[in-house]
Nucleic acid binder design. Structure first.
Length: 317
DNA sequence: AACATTGGCAACCGCATACGT
DNA sequence: CACGTATGCGGTTGCCAATGT
């Protein structure tokens, strides 16, 4: 037995609302309120509509202070940042954009913003929304997968709780990443240790992803003893929900010392300077997400409780 | 000019959750 | 606690206008 229908489907009108219906609904709600009962409202208001339809029409179109039209750069930025953090939780995102509805934002994302952003990132760099990102274990050479790990010392991996502590007041949880190190390579330990030890424990609103593309075990040792691992390239990372690339390494947002090319003993660290200082929308436009990356596997215990992320997001905005 | 395709958006649908009894 | 119902949410659909062929 299915659930009872919320209304008499045969006797309710569907499809676009007429100006007359809009006027009736608006007048009724402004005069009498919703009464906390949307199901009963259409009858009281003299409308042949389903209560759900009335609710939707009111919330998305008729209620006061609804903003229609172009989204501003700032709104784009907020949407991008939050999408990177919490995914398609449109109602939460809408809560941060006064006058915008979840439906509006969802449509905007699906039809415009996503496409706008997609143009900036190649398919190999598609990144999942934060809460969907998963611990990546690479298995050999030529891996080119996003890798997200909690910030860790060279010898230990932080627990979720410990990782959480790396976030400071009013920030997103902090995640640092280390390069993707191919397994079964003699470079693994050395590269991991040298890179990780150089990573600065950030306390900023930061979510970073680095990708490395290890294409061969080429290494050179300098006279000072530092090793350079060639062909181990950094490609991208996320910073405040913004995907950067090698070209961004010298800008004000990031400094990856040593550039994106060979990594030597102490040069692999990432530092952010002013996490909230977005100088241009172009950086935000590099955020992208993909729900269809089949190259990742799940190790969800490495990630924070989603509720805590939301708390942080709320504090931040 | 006619038809096909694409894009944008309002609205619908079904599921999960909240809430009342 | 169990059950039924209402609400809210996110995914999807369908319509229409714009654009392309």
């Amino acid at each position: 037995m299915g659930r009872a229908p919320c209304c008499d489907k045969a006797n309710v009108k569907k499809g676009p609302w007429s100006p007359e219906e809009d006027a009736k609904l608006k007048e009724y709600i402004e005069k009498s309120g919703t009464g906390g009962n949307w199901i009963a409202l259409p009858q009281k208001a003299g409308l042949r509509r389903c209560g759900k339809s009335c609710r939707l029409r009111w919330l998305n179109y008729l209620r006061p202070n609804i903003k229609h039209g172009e989204f501003s750069d700032e709104e784009d930025r907020v949407i991008c940042s939050l999408y990177a953090s919490i995914g398609s939780r449109w109602s939460i995102i809408a809560g941060q954009l006064p006058g915008r509805t979840d439906n509006d934002i969802k449509n905007y994302w699906n039809t415009k913003l996503k496409k706008k952003l997609m143009g900036f990132v190649s398919s190999s760099q598609k990144i999942r929304p934060f809460h969907q990102n998963q611990h990546q274990i690479t298995t050999g050479y030529n891996n080119y997968y996003p890798q997200i790990l909690p910030y860790s010392s060279p010898s230990t991996t932080l627990t979720t709780l410990e990782a959480y502590k790396y976030s400071n007041n009013n920030t997103f949880p902090c995640y640092e990443t280390i390069p993707t190190i191919p397994s079964s390579s003699f470079l693994n330990t050395a590269a991991a240790a040298s890179c990780t030890s150089g990573i600065t424990a950030s306390t900023s609103p930061i979510l970073q992803i680095q990708e490395s593309n290890y294409v061969g075990p080429t290494t050179t040792t300098s006279s000072d003893g530092s090793a350079e691992y060639e062909n181990l390239d950094f490609h991208s990372y996320i910073y405040n929900g913004v995907i950067g690339n090698e070209d961004d390494q010298s800008n004000s947002k990031f400094l990856i010392e040593g550039g994106g090319k060979p990594i030597n003993g102490n040069s692999c660290y990432v530092e952010q300077q002013n996490p909230l200082d977005y100088s241009s929308l172009e950086e935000i436009k590099q955020l992208i997400s993909s729900n269809n990356n089949n190259n990742v596997t799940c190790n969800s215990n490495l990630f924070l409780d989603e509720n805590k992320i939301e708390e942080k997001v709320m504090m931040y905005y």
